[in-house]
């Protein structure tokens, strides 16, 4: 039963990892940008949530009302102000610029919030649990998993069923021809980054409720998100959820064997998938 429990808890944890990954996946899909600062932006979401909670006394989940639009605005400005200038055939500029951004963000967090670990208090939600078939499931992990499914379904809908998603796909297919349709790719990329950071805001708040975080917490989050994307297969949002779940389960099962093995087991699961299925488990068949 302990093992079943570990698998179930890992699955729910996978929801959070899928949220880490969704923004990364979206950005890569639209503009082939890999954002090294993605993890730090997740942590930025958590700090913004913390600030709102401290200033207003709101419940952290309600802080989303402020944090999501703020992060979306930051995303749009960041993309149009800096990141658009890095896009081109050369992969170095986006990599190195987002890497620099990552270092800047971490040190801004240090200046603003000190190195002490912080956490958001979600009250009774943190300890509430429901009993299902002899397993005790935390309400917060369940809620996180539900939100992950909702977010991915929404992204999927936006991508494949709306004019905005059509524009995303057109720009992704062929930037030059998309411009001929009157699409300003800089604006479209800005919107994509805004959407990605809106999702990142949700991920950051849920992270900050679940565990404590500090200015350097971003690197690990980037890696988890990245691993979920690669395990699931590039460009496949639902695959990303599966990737997150596999990563989460590997971690909780690893921790069950030996607490020191929790993170290592997750990375090993990723490396095993990379060794046997380099394109991930569910690569999108590009049409």
């Amino acid at each position: 039963m302990d093992w079943v429990n570990a698998v179930v808890q890992g699955t729910l944890l996978g929801g959070l990892y899928a949220l880490f990954a969704a923004g990364l996946s979206l950005i890569f899909g639209v503009m082939r940008l890999v954002n090294i600062a993605h993890g730090d932006l997740i942590v930025l979401g958590a700090y913004l949530g913390l600030t709102v909670v401290m200033a207003t006394g709101l419940h952290p989940l309600l802080a989303l009302v402020f944090v999501v639009p703020t992060m979306a605005a930051i995303g749009y400005v960041l993309q149009r102000g800096i990141l658009n200038k890095t896009l081109g055939d050369d992969i170095l500029p986006p990599l190195l610029v987002t890497f620099g951004l990552s270092v800047i963000l971490q040190n801004l967090f240090l200046e603003g919030y000190t190195a002490d670990p912080q956490k958001m208090n979600a009250g009774a939600l943190e300890t509430a649990s429901v009993s299902v078939g002899g397993l005790s499931l935390g309400v917060l992990p369940l809620l996180t998993f539900g939100i992950a499914i909702f977010v991915i379904a929404s992204l999927q809908f936006i991508f494949y069923r709306t004019p905005l998603g059509r524009s995303f796909r057109a720009v992704s297919d062929n930037q030059e021809i998309a411009q001929l349709m009157g699409l300003n790719k800089r604006h479209i990329f800005g919107l994509a980054m805004a959407l990605a950071l809106a999702v990142t805001a949700i991920a950051g708040i849920l992270l900050g409720i679940r565990t404590s975080f500090d200015p350097t917490a971003g690197g690990a989050r980037l890696i988890y998100g990245f691993e979920a994307v690669i395990i699931g297969g590039l460009g496949n949002l639902w695959g990303t959820l599966v990737g997150g779940v596999i990563l989460g389960v590997a971690q909780t099962v690893g921790a069950k064997i030996d607490p020191g093995w929790q993170l290592l087991a997750g990375h090993i699961a990723f490396l095993v998938v990379l060794a046997i299925r380099p394109n991930g488990l569910f690569p999108r068949v590009s049409g």
């Binding site: 004019p163 059509r166 796909r169 057109a170 998309a178 699409l183 049409g287």
Partner: peptide, 21 residues
């Protein structure tokens, strides 16, 4: 454009719709 250059990940109708955006 030369070589037609349709958007491969868009359907026929979506290709037309994006032309009309």
């Amino acid at each position: 454009p030369e070589g037609r250059q349709l958007f491969p990940s868009l359907s026929v109708e979506e290709n037309l719709l994006i032309g009309g955006r």
